[in-house]
Design a protein around this nucleic acid. Structure first.
Lengths: 194, 194, 194, 194
DNA sequence: GATGAATGAGCTTTCATTCAT
DNA sequence: CATGAATGAAAGCTCATTCAT
């Protein structure tokens, strides 16, 4: 009595977990099938190729991330807004173990051998940055230098990605809140300078 | 000291080039042998496994990066020093096509299936951050809040990694100098605020 | 007697078309099901195996061919009969695109891995040749050497199969009417020689 | 101490034998490897794909056939030449068990899913027919109608292929020498008619 | 030092077939 | 009648690794 969506969902989740753990190339369809408690044949009943599974994982992942980004950024538009940018960082980074790894692997895959995936990611990054920039413009009251805001939007996105990378490397305990405060300072200073 | 080192060097360079282009998993020993104009057997005369070749590539890569990081940071200690932090960014990012890709692939490899490699990278990241922090302390004249400088050092390293990722995704033309200026502003502000 | 036969007929026609296009081994049951707009399960309601479908196709095909052969040969018994043997060739060859390919594939299948099919074809070939021989005897007025007529019947059948093969290979434009004339000449000569 | 050519030769012969027995699609690389007493990996050391193996078989096969065709036809140019056309048939057909089957399977493969192979065969068929036509012109002393000779060349080639097919189907005992005599008659008649 | 030959495990994918509903 | 879900064996192919010479 397994329903269509159920099995497909199980495959998707298994594949996500395994890819998050081992990376795209190191996760075989046999792995996914075994982890999902189905046969390799069933995999192909729901997906037409490994590539197809990865595309689905990427879609789901990008949707989740996008929702998270929007949620974070939209919340910043309140009154004591800039300070809540802390959340942008902390919230996003706190999801590292569940999504950060898969984010990294998918990006590696996208850069090396999956042009379609690269385009998907490229578009999302643009989208995220545009949204962030719009919110920054609102926060700054629209009177700031356009190029400075542009730079700031690039910078904020980079910081997040860079911190995800560092956290995955487990090099050091990262002082997220200190870094967040540092960033807030930067923004506030720029804002009040005018 | 003739053919021996020479051949090993050729292998190392070939492998680096190929891995930078295709990633670790997608680069086969056959690829490396062909590109090096030697036989697969010879590969095993110089290296005991594929893993061994990657370790050597990582060593070389980390040495190069470390030298670059030190060079950059040491130069910042001049008088109008903070402004030359621009260089930290621009210089590092400008080497993207040659080292950025291999950096990403090695990190992916390190995160997923090569604990030894992960430890190697983790140590280097700590080392780089310590160096950077020392230079920041010098630049700030030692009177700043320690935690703020700590945070700043994390932040600067993150930005670089994040920008490398974005540049590899080719999502947008990244305004490096604007971002650099933005960062300099941040540091200068903090410095003069006291 | 409604949907039952109808569906089975659709399956048969779809399978014939696909096998004519792609050959037996390259035509999957999934292909046939999709082309018939039914599910794979339904296929098994009407046929117990792929082998079973092919047997049915062969039956139908052999029936069609036999009818065509008989039609042709029977027409030759008129007065200026031998000349209309042209038709035997031209008519048969003109149906190449629709039946020639399936004929070839079924014969290949019969030769390699389907003994039952081989026996079916063998019997039909005997039958066709007997019929042809009878007609030749009639045409020759029964006074000819039996072995020569026997040989002629083998020869005529061979020519047709050989020409089908060549036409499928698309090596050259085959001068069917010239060849037909050549054959008529042969027969007429033999006939009048006595 | 297996030499390069030796192993490749073994593979080629094994593959030929198996394909002659089972056809192209039904002969797996595992079959070939097992029959050759080597591993599947070794197969790929000598050939880059299954397609590659088949191409090699086809080359060898076509070379053998071409040599046989030339040998036969060239011998016909003697004095009592036309009668030795018997040989064209008998010699060619007598090689059925060794080459006829493979000929059929390769042609099936060529027709259905290997355009390159089809072109190879198409060219050879043209070549064979040209050679045969030249010899016929010589035999006829050059005074015959060109179109009649053309037709005759098509006809002779068709007969051979058709007889091969029938012999593989094992429908009946084929009276090769009677058929040959019948053909010789045809040619001689045409020749002396002028 | 260097090589070519050989291997076997594992990869992605295909497909005829089964069966509960 | 008809289906969608599931299967497992087998296919073509890749690749790190071994080893005699």
């Amino acid at each position: 009595m397994k329903s269509n969506n159920n099995t497909k969902q199980i495959i998707l989740e298994s594949a996500s977990k395994l890819i998050a753990k081992q990376g795209v190339k190191s996760t075989s369809l046999a792995d996914i099938a075994k982890y999902s408690n189905i046969s390799k044949g069933t995999l192909y009943y729901y997906y037409s190729s490994k590539y197809d599974i990865i595309a689905d994982i990427a879609d789901t992942h990008l949707e989740i991330i996008t929702k998270a980004v929007l949620d974070c950024v939209k919340n910043v538009t309140g009154d004591e807004d800039t300070f809540s940018l802390v959340q942008v960082i902390v919230d996003r980074i706190s999801t590292i173990s569940s999504t950060g790894r898969i984010h990294m692997y998918l990006i590696c895959e996208a850069i090396t051998e999956n042009e379609a995936l690269r385009l998907q990611f490229a578009e999302k990054y643009r989208e995220w940055r545009f949204t962030l920039r719009e919110e920054l413009i609102k926060a700054f009251g629209g009177i700031k230098d356009e190029r400075e805001i542009e730079a700031l939007s690039f910078l904020l996105i980079s910081v997040v990605d860079g911190l995800v990378m560092q956290s995955l490397l487990k090099a050091e305990n990262i002082p997220y809140s200190d870094i967040a405060k540092c960033l807030v300072d930067t923004i506030v200073t720029k804002k009040t300078r005018d």
